[in-house]
Structures are given as structure tokens and as C-alpha cells.
């Protein structure tokens, strides 16, 4: 009997202890989670704050606070945001299609085929990927100029997908894990490499394709440095550059545009968040299957 109660007490003690530990963890998670969400809440709050319209406020909730959709109306009427949005969608769709295709092709060649130049090429591409991209930006600009392509969205698509092959690594890692026996079976059935690529490997590579599509679709929404160099015409801006220019004309001083910027950022952020959350499962799969072994 004595022994039984002591065991019970011990178990009870353990429960209490783990309850306390869990309690602490809940508190930490809650505090940090709020910290992580707060800037986003601030973004939304500013986007819907019609007055005061500057970024400078002297109270967290100012006395003349007025919420509404005014900033969104201004964004669409007073800035070229709709054009920028259209531009970005166009560039993102085209460059994402090309990039994904390129990455799949390069990864398949490096993962499934064996040829003399394979290792040297892989190493050269690894080294190439290590040069900081904008070191060569001015040269890219002049090459595009020589081709008569500056100030065009087509140039952006070319630049974004031109370097795509360099990020083959994650996708190749994924292809490496696919079993070879499937291919061998297909070869016995008389398939050539073309058929294997389209009919065997691509259908199996769904997670990594979604991952690649997602990352390459998102990158034009976020890049403003290349756009900044290549494009001077405000009607050809993408959202990133447009919004950047909106508030960065006068650095670190708030302007009327700040709330409008937040409205634009909310739209862009909302779009990407929706996309991201719907694809989260594949994204995680892609990251953990290819990047890490």
C-alpha cells in the first residue's frame, strides 16, 4: 500500500511538473506569437486608418482616429497601383513558368543522366551562384540596352528566368531521392528519356514543382533592386518598386503616402499569404525533401 501511494504521488508530481512546464511554454509561445503578429496588425491598422494619414502619431490610438477604406481608394485612384499590379502578375506568371521549366530540366539532367561534363558543370554553376547578383547588374543593364530591351517587362522576365538554372540544387536533391527502378521499368517498356521525363518523373515531382512555382512566383513580387536598375518608366514598375518609391522618395521622414503604402502592402501581402497558406503543405515538403539530407 505504501509503495502504491508513493508511486501515485510520484506520478502526480510528474504531472504537476509537466503541467508547469507546459504552462511556461504556453506563456512564451503566446508572448512571442503576439510579438510576431503585432507588426502585421500595425500594418493593417495603418492601412485602414484614414486620419491621421501620416505615419507620425503621438498616441497609439490618436484622438482624431478614423478608420475606413480611404487609403485603398486613394491607392487605386491616385497612384498607378492597378498598372503595377498587372505588370507584376504578368512578369510573375511568365518568369515563374520559365523558371520552373528550366529548373526541372537542369535538375533532371544532373540527377538522372550521366555525361562527361556533369560534375564540372555542376561545380561551375555552384561557383557562379556565389557572385553577388547585383555586382553584374550594371552590365546586365547594358546588355539589355544593346538588345533594345530596357524599360520593358520582357527584359524583367528574361533576367528573372535567365539565372534560374543556378538554383537547381534543391530540385536535384529531390530527384535524387526518386527510385531508379521506375525508370528502368519504363525503359524495359521501350520508353526513351523524353517519355520518362514527362510521364514518370514530372508526375512524381509534384511537391517540388509546387515549391519551385511558389518561390519563383513570389520573387518578382519582392524584388525591387533589379527593377530599379532596368526600368525607369513608372508605368512599367512592379508593385515592389512602386511601393518602395512611394515612401522612399524622402527617406525616414513620414509622408502622406505612408498609409497608402500600407494599403498597397496589405493587398500584396494578402495575395501572397493566401497563396502561401494554400500551398503550405507542399512548401514544407519541398523545403525538407530537397534542402536537407
Amino acid at each position: 500500500m505504501m509503495k502504491d501511494t508513493s508511486v501515485k504521488e510520484k506520478l502526480f508530481g510528474q504531472k504537476v511538473r509537466s503541467g508547469i512546464v507546459n504552462g511556461i511554454i504556453y506563456v512564451i509561445l503566446a508572448v512571442l506569437g503576439i510579438l510576431w503578429v503585432l507588426p502585421i496588425v500595425y500594418l493593417l491598422y495603418t492601412a485602414f486608418r484614414v486620419t491621421p494619414s501620416t505615419g507620425i502619431i503621438y498616441d497609439v490610438i490618436p484622438p482624431d482616429l478614423e478608420l475606413g477604406f480611404g487609403n485603398f481608394v486613394r491607392l487605386f485612384n491616385e497612384t498607378m497601383f492597378p498598372t503595377w499590379l498587372g505588370n507584376t502578375v504578368l512578369v510573375a506568371v511568365c518568369s515563374c513558368a520559365l523558371t520552373t521549366l528550366f529548373i526541372l530540366m537542369v535538375s533532371y539532367a544532373f540527377s538522372r543522366m550521366r555525361f562527361k561534363l556533369r560534375k564540372p558543370l555542376m561545380n561551375v554553376m555552384l561557383v557562379l551562384g556565389m557572385f553577388p547578383g547585383f555586382m553584374s547588374m550594371i552590365a546586365v543593364y547594358f546588355i539589355l540596352k544593346a538588345m533594345g530591351l530596357t524599360n520593358s517587362l520582357f527584359a524583367l522576365i528574361l533576367v528573372y528566368s535567365g539565372g534560374a538554372a543556378l538554383s537547381y540544387y534543391i530540385c536535384k536533391g529531390f530527384f535524387d531521392t526518386l527510385p531508379r527502378s521506375l525508370e528502368e521499368a519504363a525503359i524495359l517498356d521501350g520508353a526513351n528519356q523524353w517519355t520518362i521525363f514527362w510521364r514518370v518523373t514530372i508526375p512524381l515531382a509534384k511537391p517540388i514543382i509546387v515549391y519551385t512555382v511558389l518561390t519563383s512566383f513570389i520573387s518578382p513580387w519582392c524584388d525591387f533592386i533589379f527593377v530599379n536598375t532596368i526600368i525607369n518608366d513608372a508605368t512599367k514598375y512592379t508593385v515592389a518598386l512602386g511601393l518602395y518609391r512611394l515612401i522612399n522618395a524622402e527617406k525616414s521622414s513620414f509622408s502622406e503616402n505612408f498609409t497608402v503604402f500600407c494599403a498597397g502592402a496589405t493587398i500584396v501581402g494578402g495575395l501572397i499569404t493566401a497563396l502561401f497558406l494554400s500551398m503550405q503543405k507542399y512548401y514544407v515538403e519541398g523545403v525538407s525533401s530537397g534542402a536537407v539530407k
Binding site: L43, W221, F224, A240, L243, Y244, A265, T273
Partner: peptide, 8 residues
């Protein structure tokens, strides 16, 4: 936080 574009 990942989903919101970095520049934003």
C-alpha cells in the same frame, strides 16, 4: 510572417 513579402 514568411508570407508577407520581405520588402514590405
Amino acid at each position: 510572417a514568411i508570407a508577407v513579402p520581405q520588402f514590405v
